[in-house]
Nucleic acid binder design. Sequence first.
DNA 1: GGAGAAAATAACCAATTAGTTACTTTTGGA
DNA 2: TCCAAAAGTAACTAATTGGTTATTTTCTCC
Lengths: 207, 207
Amino acid sequence: MAEKRYKKSEITREKILEVAEEHFAEKGFFGARVDEIADSADVNKRMLYSHFGSKEGLYTAVLVKTYKRLAEFEKHFIIEGIDPIASIRNIVLTSFRFLSQNPNFVRMLLWENLNMAKSVPRDELSRLKAPSLEYMREQIRRGKEQGIFRADADEFHTVFSLMNLCFSYFSNIHTMSAMLSRDMTADEEVISRAEYISDVIIKYLEP
Amino acid sequence: MAEKRYKKSEITREKILEVAEEHFAEKGFFGARVDEIADSADVNKRMLYSHFGSKEGLYTAVLVKTYKRLAEFEKHFIIEGIDPIASIRNIVLTSFRFLSQNPNFVRMLLWENLNMAKSVPRDELSRLKAPSLEYMREQIRRGKEQGIFRADADEFHTVFSLMNLCFSYFSNIHTMSAMLSRDMTADEEVISRAEYISDVIIKYLEP
DNA sequence: GGAGAAAATAACCAATTAGTTACTTTTGGA
DNA sequence: TCCAAAAGTAACTAATTGGTTATTTTCTCC
């Protein structure tokens, strides 16, 4: 049972990671404080450093963990034996489900986007390239072959728009709610938004 | 000429503001350093404080200035005497022009969105509510009245989508370029994107 | 041209920050 | 039972940070 030895260390590590995710998602890399993370996790700062080496090391670990959740979720995008239109609706709904369940993912991605090309090199993360993107494109292609979608519909831009529409709903929800004077966090609002996005995309694709 | 007195002070103020915008847009409120801003502006830190009171005061001043640029630009959204379809194309193109010319605006808005409800209270800014939003909605309504657009097209969601599609192109351009392995900063790419967005929106609105 | 106020400077301060060191406690296997 | 290694603690450090003070320079108006 060599693996089980000092299991408590692993628990501490997980606890730090969990708390750190909240802090980094909330305040970003520069806004988050190492001492605060250690305190919130009820762990000595020393342990944080022995596990992750530095603030940056901890941040990267959080980022990897966050991205992994998306990778694991991607299987839900794929449903066999449904028509391309249903497939697109499923992609939108699945994206909405993931994004609403993972607000930290949304925020971490936004921070990353803003801090890009700075301080922290994240080579391994730059090859994110979710496989589901290629899947979406396939669905459009399949629809074209079946004559359900226009042959001249732009596949690249459509996939890009679909992603943007889903993501930006969650990333701008607060600013937009204020700007448009309409609370968009309500459940029925979220669902109606997902439907609308599917409608727009499908209408564009249709002949 | 009492106003002209000590004009140099005003020049210093502008210089600080200009440099601070670059720093805050680049690194955000927490990432930017007061000393660096003062150094870059070739100005003594003391002057920065006598003009703006605090780091927060300076940040708010930059934010106000940035937002004002949008307010001034909004007139370009409005063109009299064109049909609703041309109007929507103009709105998209104008948004693209503004956003590509004001990368700092894009970044400041992203930082604001992430820091929202934190530390810095910005009451006066929360009532941003660009009047052009109402104008967009009017154009859709006008199209409906003329029978060019579907009567049951969702006005709110469409305005929201149009904004999101335009904004997210510029806010995610780097992440997305990497993810989709396609450099989207190139000029012809930007133009084709604007056209695509108009197409999607118009196709949704058409009967 | 000199008086007085505003603008500008440099050196300083107190608080906070990421990161470390020297030390004690716990653990699992022999 | 004992011991070596790992886990954990608390106090410390050096650097950085936003912000200030005491002082000198510059400018406008009489």
